[in-house]
Simulated assay, not measured.
Amino acid sequence: MKNEIDSKFILQVFEIIRLHGEKKGENYFLQGIEASSDFDGYTLFLQDAQVQLSFGFHNQYHLDYLKEEHLEQFIDKLKAIKSRK
């Protein structure tokens, strides 16, 4: 899978999780995805048990995962959150 995720998509999913997710401490949880940010809010994090996405300055992001199938499942979860009504 090509690692090209639209920055607008990432921000929209993060906001949906923040608005509709369950807050635990400083983090939010929705449909198996955890959303958090660093102390100044410049770097956002979306993660599940197998993938971590960090998104920050100049709309750059980094993905940490072991298997391509984990990334595909993670992206599917993000798409499901984005399609919430």
Rank of each mutant, 00 (worst) to 15 (best):
L30H: 02
G32Y: 06
Y42D: 15
L44M: 14
Q52M: 13
N27E: 08
K85P: 08
Q73M: 09
A49C: 01
E22I: 11
Y61N: 06
F45R: 13
K67M: 11
R84W: 03
Y28K: 01
Q31I: 01
S36R: 08
E34W: 05
I81V: 09
K79Y: 08
L53F: 09
S37L: 04
I81M: 03
R84T: 08
I5S: 04
K8E: 14
I17E: 02
N27Y: 09
G25W: 10
F55K: 07
Q50W: 08
A35K: 01
Y42G: 15
I75H: 07
E69K: 15
L19F: 01
H58Q: 15
I81F: 01
I5V: 15
K82F: 11
L66W: 06
E26M: 09
K24L: 13
E22P: 00
E4M: 11
F14P: 01
Y61V: 04
Q31M: 11
E26A: 14
K8V: 10
E68G: 07
Q50A: 10
S54Q: 12
G32K: 03
E69M: 06
H70M: 02
K23N: 10
S37N: 15
I17W: 03
Y28Q: 00
Y65K: 07
T43I: 15
K82W: 07
L19W: 00
R18P: 00
E4I: 13
L53T: 06
R18T: 04
F14G: 00
F29G: 00
F29E: 04
I17R: 03
E68S: 14
E26L: 09
L19I: 00
G25Y: 12
F74P: 08
E26N: 14
K24M: 07
T43F: 09
F39P: 03
K8S: 10
D76A: 15
Q73L: 14
F14E: 02
Q73N: 12
E26Y: 14
R18C: 02
